[in-house]
Nucleic acid binder design. Structure first.
Lengths: 192, 192
DNA sequence: GCCTGGCATTGAACTAGGACAAGAAAACAA
DNA sequence: TTGTTTTCTTGTCCTAGTTCAATGCCAGGC
């Protein structure tokens, strides 16, 4: 049950066996069926979850019902609305399971005490957020600067396993194009 | 010289007078004329700089010379390509002064020793990056989901002082629209 | 005082991608 | 198996925003 996260932790922080054990001991293990909404817009996000198994999508919806997928997350990823979690303020996004999911969960309180007990995790989480930030920067650039086709090609190159796991129209909403147009882009690519 | 940053530090971390003094003591104070490129694409970013005075722009350029402004930064902001700075790998962005700038600079080494001396700063920097991430998430959403006009209105509301300080075509490149179209949007708004 | 180069504006022609509608094809449930 | 829902495709028409080119504007250097 803790194999994945321990492998992850060993790679990203060097903890003693006791620290690792403590980390494991405060995690809450939960499973959720497919299509469970873990966080609604307007709610406060009270989890930071490590995905042990499954696939999750984070997305926004605007006034007109238009959806933008912010992120797909699979095994070994952390999911949370960090801003909401950290400041305990209402979130403006949704988080939803796309498959049955097995999660290891930190609450704001357990995370606090974890950081108090194992201060060097502060650094691990910082680096995690930094990487996230940096990849989001690159994505914003591509979203603005490149064509639908290039964004799609880039996506399947970067995340080769995702297209097999999630409906195509969610990928469109990640790329910032309509589902119909993505379909057209794909047929054009297949003809070559 | 350290007024601004100390006000900032007191607000964001609670340091003792000695810690504050130590922080100040390792900062490198530098000024740069307008239009100085502080970081070129391909270079390793070796600064994390607090803006004491001035205005800075971070941007990407693609193969065709198309520019995307990632960020404007003014007084009280930190600027750096965090990924490049942290991993000491080549950056893919440019950082340029738009006005004469007065900066307080950390190098990778001084930042390391600062964090070693004053561990609770680890948290301050993490929160800084978290806020950044969260606002970039919101921006990506708006970039994808809203019209040019709404993006512009949102921008001037969020950053009311920026339009007076930077050329308009840079704002267009921040919003992800052409300079010409921004001009058309503006004249349309003025007619109302 | 005048020239020069960066900015902003405007218009005309064009295009990438959107919206809508309708059908086909999977996926799922019972 | 059959009905139901969700997903994917394809075509037609449409529009927000681009590109290009021309013009004017002003700020700064000498």
């Amino acid at each position: 049950m803790f194999d994945r996260i321990n492998t992850y932790l060993i790679r990203h922080a060097n903890l003693t066996v006791e620290e690792l054990g403590y980390f494991n001991s405060i995690l809450q293990h939960k499973t959720f069926p497919k299509k469970t909404i873990l966080l609604h817009e307007g709610e406060v996000c009270n989890f930071e979850a490590f995905i042990n198994k499954g696939c999750i999508r984070m997305y926004y919806i605007d006034e007109n019902g238009f959806e933008v997928t912010l992120q797909f997350a699979i095994e070994d990823w952390w999911v949370s609305d960090i801003a909401s979690f950290h400041d305990q303020k209402p979130s403006s996004m949704f988080i939803e399971t796309l498959e049955e999911c097995e999660l290891l969960i930190l609450s704001p309180q357990t995370k606090e005490s974890l950081l108090a007990q194992v201060p060097q995790l502060e650094r691990m989480f910082r680096i995690l957020v930094q990487r996230n930030l940096s990849s989001l920067q690159g994505r914003l650039f591509k979203t603005i600067a490149t064509s639908a086709q290039d964004k799609y090609l880039d996506f399947i190159k970067r995340y080769p396993t995702i297209p097999q796991r999630v409906p195509q129209h969610y990928i469109a909403s990640y790329l910032g194009i309509s589902a119909e147009f993505l379909s057209k882009v794909r047929t054009k690519l297949l003809k070559k």
